[in-house]
């Protein structure tokens, strides 16, 4: 492992209590600093499970994880500080306004005062939420909630940002805005790990992708490389379908 690697996963497995099949099955991955890494796979492939383990939500059944040179088990406090998470499910207090939600989460990251206020205002205006910021989140549209959900994960300028399907249910306009700002964030040094079902989006956004299914990594590489490798494919979506079959997933 070099200092160029920010996340190193070795033989990661997770079997949920009461389940026979592992949700994550012996995954090994290396993610470089400054990468936009796409974790792609059908429903139930184990994407959310992998991300949850990486941000310390629950321990793996087995495997070794090293983030920014620190061991996940031993230095969880440090890792939590440098990691930002945007969960797949909206994690906001519906009875609070967007501003109050962000204020609260900002405080939980140890931010306060003017620095926090400025940060919140900047992101609210970036995402066109300034006018709605004093309305309760429960009155927001799905896309607005997604945007606030995203801001809550980036307020503390994390070194590593985990995004679990940040663009689900978001219209094309918002999606473009979100992707643009994420690219900007990446340029300023944030490593992004991202899951999605939008192959088209992933193809253009990610610098590196891994396709996983049934908890295993099937293939890994740059989107361009994967398309070239797969005979007769012109985009990531056909590659994906070829590799994961067309059967429906849970």
């Amino acid at each position: 492992m070099t200092s160029n690697t920010i996340i190193n996963i070795q033989n990661l497995s997770k079997t949920f209590i009461g389940k026979t099949e592992p949700a994550v099955n012996d995954i090994s991955l290396s993610i470089r600093r400054g990468e936009i890494f796409g974790l792609l796979g059908p429903n139930g492939a184990g994407k959310t499970t992998t991300i949850s383990i990486l941000c310390g939500l629950f321990p793996p059944s087995s495997g070794k994880i090293n983030i920014d040179g620190m061991d996940l088990r031993g230095d969880l406090d440090y890792i939590k500080q440098i990691v930002g998470v945007v969960p797949q499910d909206i994690a906001l207090y519906p009875t609070l306004t967007a501003r109050e939600n962000l204020n609260f989460y900002g405080h939980m990251y140890g931010l306060k005062g003017k620095a926090l206020r400025d940060k919140i205002e900047m992101w609210l205006s970036n995402f066109g939420l300034t006018d709605a910021a004093n309305r309760r989140v429960s009155t927001y549209s799905g896309g607005m909630k997604r945007r606030v959900n995203l801001i809550a994960g980036v307020l503390h300028s994390p070194k590593i940002l985990f995004l679990d399907e940040p663009t689900v249910g978001v219209d094309v306009q918002s999606r473009t805005v979100i992707i643009d700002y994420l690219k900007e964030l990446n340029k300023s040094g944030t490593t992004i790990i991202y899951t999605s079902h939008h192959m088209d989006e992933a193809e253009h956004f990610c610098t590196q992708v891994a396709i996983i299914d049934h908890g295993k990594i099937i293939i890994e590489g740059t989107p361009k490389h994967l398309i070239e490798e797969s005979l007769g494919s012109t985009n990531l979506e056909t590659v994906f379908l070829k590799l994961t079959n067309r059967a429906l997933r849970d």
Partner: peptide, 18 residues
Amino acid sequence: NEGSIFRLHTMPSSFLLL
């Protein structure tokens, strides 16, 4: 149930503090 707890668990502030 609203998932806030998950986010809170990924945050550095100790859960006890919350």
